[in-house]
């Protein structure tokens, strides 16, 4: 094989690696909250306290496990102790009001309008 051919093959190989890396960077998957290890395991009131004491960065955009008693079920949204709203992608089948549950989800922030901390991509992990 001539040197020129070898270089040509190497360049082609290099380019395809760059293209592959570029593509996987551009189109990497969304975070899978349920497979992530939780950075905090806390109660609903402790979570609210984090936002009241300006320690929001400990929770914001992090995967958490929050425990509390179900106070309201509204479509795909479950409220724990009136202070934490959990948004589910797929609503679990077996749970009821007044039940104590553990919810794993991503904390998306404090909702001043409703006075609740919100989690999304939730799943019950009792």
């Amino acid at each position: 094989m001539s040197n020129r051919k070898k270089i040509g093959i190497l360049v082609l190989l290099g380019l395809s690696v760059v293209a592959y890396l570029g593509y996987t960077y551009m189109y990497h998957d969304h975070r899978d909250i349920q497979s992530e290890a939780p950075s905090l395991t806390i109660s609903s009131s402790q979570l609210v306290a984090l936002f009241e004491t300006e320690s929001a960065e400990e929770a914001l955009n992090k995967t958490l496990v929050v425990s509390g008693v179900v106070t309201k079920i509204d479509g795909s949204l479950i409220t724990l102790d009136d202070v934490v709203d959990c948004v589910f992608g797929v609503l679990p089948e077996s749970f009821y009001v007044n039940e104590r549950i553990h919810v794993k989800g991503r904390c998306i922030g404090f909702d001043d309008l409703m006075g609740t901390v919100k989690l999304d991509q939730c799943q019950i992990i009792n």
């Binding site: 960077y25 189109y27 969304h30 955009n61 998306i108 922030g109 909702d111 309008l113 409703m114 919100k118």
Partner: peptide, 18 residues
């Protein structure tokens, strides 16, 4: 009328864009 949207709750098709 009042409304509040949390920015982290906006979901994009492409993860990198989000």
């Amino acid at each position: 009328f009042a409304s509040l949207a949390l920015m982290n709750a906006f979901r994009f098709k492409v993860a990198l864009m989000e």
